[in-house]
C-alpha cells in the first residue's frame, strides 16, 4: 500500500482525503473496507521514513489552505524502483491492478508495458508448472497441487488479456492523458 500511495503522489501533492477517494474509485467494492485512518497511518509512516513531506497547499481551489503530502527525492526514487520491479510470482490481482492504476496516474510507466512484462513472467511460471504437471501423475498429491497452480496462473493470464484490452482503450499510446 505504501508504494501505491507514493505513486499516486507523483503527479501532484495530494491531501489524504483525495488519495482515499482515488483508491476507492480504483478498488470499487474491494476498497469499502479502506478507511481514512489507514491512509493517514500509511502517510505518517512514509513521512517518518523521509519519503513524503507535508506542505501547505499553495493555491486552494476552494476553502482554506490544507496540508498536502508531497514526494521527497527519496520517495520519487522508491516509486521508480517499485514501477521497475516485477510483481513477483505470488502477487495478487488487486496489487497488480493498483500498480497499473498508479502507473497510468503517475505517468511513470506505460500500463501496457507492465502488462506485457507480467504476461511474460506468468507465462514462464506457467511453463514450469505445466511441465512439472506433465511429469507427475495427475492423481498424485504433487500432481494435484501442480494442477491447481497451473489453473491459477492460467486465470491470471486470462485476466491480463482483459487488462490489455481495457488499458489500450483508455490510454491512446503516446498521449499522457490523466483521468483525475
Amino acid at each position: 500500500m505504501q508504494d501505491v500511495v507514493l505513486a499516486l503522489l507523483t503527479k501532484e501533492p495530494s491531501h489524504g482525503y483525495d488519495l482515499r477517494q482515488r483508491l476507492a474509485a480504483a478498488l470499487g467494492p474491494l476498497g469499502e473496507a479502506l478507511n481514512a485512518g489507514q491512509i493517514y497511518v500509511t502517510l505518517t509512516r512514509l513521512e517518518k521514513a523521509g519519503l513524503v513531506v507535508q506542505e501547505r497547499e499553495d493555491a486552494p481551489v476552494r476553502g482554506p489552505r490544507r496540508k498536502v503530502y508531497a514526494l521527497t527525492a527519496a520517495g520519487q526514487e522508491r516509486v521508480a524502483a517499485w514501477m521497475a520491479e516485477s510483481a513477483g510470482p505470488r502477487a495478487d490481482v488487486a496489487e497488480f491492478h493498483l500498480k497499473l492504476v498508479a502507473a497510468a496516474e503517475s505517468g511513470l510507466a506505460d500500463p501496457l508495458a507492465l502488462v506485457d512484462a507480467r504476461r511474460r513472467e506468468l507465462m514462464r511460471s506457467l511453463a514450469e508448472a505445466q511441465r512439472a504437471a506433465l511429469a507427475h501423475d495427475t492423481d498424485s498429491e504433487a500432481g494435484l497441487l501442480l494442477e491447481g497452480i497451473a489453473l491459477r496462473l492460467q486465470a491470471d493470464l486470462r485476466w491480463l488479456e482483459a487488462c490489455e484490452r481495457a488499458w489500450s482503450a483508455r490510454a491512446p499510446r503516446g498521449e499522457g492523458e490523466g483521468n483525475g
Binding site: 513477483g88 510470482p89 505470488r90 513472467e121 514462464r124 511460471s125 511453463a127 514450469e128 508448472a129 512439472a132 511429469a135 497452480i149
Partner: peptide, 20 residues
Amino acid sequence: RRHGHGGTGLGGTGLGALLS
C-alpha cells in the same frame, strides 16, 4: 529434463517461490 530435480533453468524464480 523429464523429471524435475529442483531448479528451473527458466531464469524465473522457480516453482518454490510460489510457496511461502
